[in-house]
Every structure is written in structure tokens, then in C-alpha cells.
Amino acid sequence: MIDFLQTLIEYHIEEAASMILFGIGFSLLLLNRNLIKKIMGLNIMDTAVYLFLTAKGYVYGRMVPIMNSGITDPNAYTNPIPDGLVLTGIVVSVSVSAILLSLTIRLYDRYHTLDLDKIITEWRKEEDN
């Protein structure tokens, strides 16, 4: 166990942190009944994955992937691929959050609560009528 923790802290601290964040976001999205908290959980979950990806693109002692004074040696720069993926991912997260927030506004309009369980209960009542 101590070995495990030591490896984590020594070599994998970013990854471990992003996995913990992923777990927190996932639990928020799945378990919290408050819609706005759910959306925050979604954002936290996504940014955790992006943190993981960026950490995998980093290499000790290398430069930002922007050409600097004509050097084109691949060993001089960090990996540009994760950055590109994360840029795409961030756009997807924003779009999804905007849709979820507008859904929240409409639901609050109708049911006057943010509690998804209560909303579903109300909804079942209406439906059985």
C-alpha cells in the first residue's frame, strides 16, 4: 500500500489527481439531485479528463509546442496532440452545458424546483392522471 502511494506521488501525481476529480464529477453527475450541481459535475468530469490528457502530453524540460527560433527538433517540444484534443473537447463541454442549463431554466419554469427526483415524481403524477 505504501509502495503504491509512493509510486503515485512520485510518478503519477497528475494522473491520480485527475482520476479523483473524474470520480468526484462522475458522482456529482450521477448522484446529486440538484440539476445545477449535476451540470457542474459534468464540467468537472470533463476537465478532469482534459487534465489527464494534458499531463500525458507533457515531457520534462521541453518547450511549448510553438516554433521557437527555427528549431524543428521533435525532442525540443512537448506533444501537441493532447492539446488539440482538449481544445475540441472544451467546445463540446461548453455546448453541452449550455443545452443542459437551458433545459434547467425550462424545467424550473414548469416545476419550480431544481430537484430532479421531485420533478420526475411530479411528472409521474401528471402522467397517471
Partner: peptide, 22 residues
């Protein structure tokens, strides 16, 4: 109303799925 509740349930489940896939 029904459509919106259904949509948010669908969305939450789907996003959990996409998160795991990602």
C-alpha cells in the same frame, strides 16, 4: 413538459456514457 423531462434524463445518462468513453 414531458419532452423536457425526458430530454434531461436522456442527456444525463448519455453524458455519463460519453464521459466513460472519453
Amino acid at each position: 413538459g414531458h419532452g423536457i423531462v425526458a430530454a434531461i434524463r436522456y442527456m444525463v445518462m448519455s453524458l455519463i456514457g460519453s464521459g466513460l468513453f472519453l
